Simulated scan of single mutants.
Amino acid sequence: MATASCGSGCGGGANWGIWLMVLGPWVVWLISSAWATVRLVRKKTASWIMLAGGGLAAVIYVLANVLLFVAIG
């Protein structure tokens, strides 16, 4: 947080925002990929799962950025 103006007083919101921003989309991607693979093995449609996972990953990333910016001030 070398560039943040809040110093050590940002609280846990900045820490949650950073970890959610970094790991959230990857976790969603892994879960949706595994679910889509299972559906493909069972000969079912799986394209909507990857589209929904991509949309959810983008939403989580944006919300984590908002949480981070609100926490920093």
Rank of each mutant, 00 (worst) to 15 (best):
M50R: 13
A57G: 11
V27H: 06
I49F: 05
Y61W: 12
C10I: 07
R42T: 07
R42W: 11
S47C: 07
G55H: 03
K44V: 03
R39L: 15
K44W: 11
G54N: 05
W48K: 11
S33F: 08
A58I: 02
R42H: 14
T3M: 13
M21G: 06
A71G: 07
M50S: 13
A14K: 04
K44Q: 14
G53A: 09
L63G: 02
W16K: 00
V27P: 02
L56A: 12
W29L: 15
A71M: 05
L23Q: 03
G73C: 11
V38K: 14
G73K: 12
A14S: 11
I72L: 13
W29M: 15
M50F: 10
A14E: 03
V66Y: 15
G9Y: 09
F69T: 07
N65M: 12
L20I: 06
Y61A: 10
V62M: 11
G11Q: 05
G55T: 06
L56W: 01
W16S: 03
S47E: 13
T3L: 13
N65T: 08
G17R: 03
A57L: 02
S32G: 09
T37V: 10
S47D: 15
N65W: 08
W35F: 12
L20E: 02
I60Y: 02
W26C: 07
L68W: 09
A34L: 15
I31E: 01
I31T: 07
L68G: 04
W26A: 13
S32Y: 03
V28Q: 01
T3C: 08
G53H: 01
C6Q: 12
G17T: 02
S8Y: 05
S8T: 12
S33E: 02
P25L: 08
G12K: 01
W35V: 13
A14I: 11
S33R: 08
G53W: 01
A57N: 04
L67Y: 04
I49S: 02
K43C: 04
S47A: 12
V22W: 08
L20F: 11
V62C: 07
W35E: 04
I31H: 00
L67A: 05
S8F: 08
V38C: 08
L30W: 14
A71H: 03
C6W: 11
K44A: 11
S8A: 14
L51Q: 13
G12I: 01
V28L: 09
I18M: 10
G73W: 14
A34D: 03
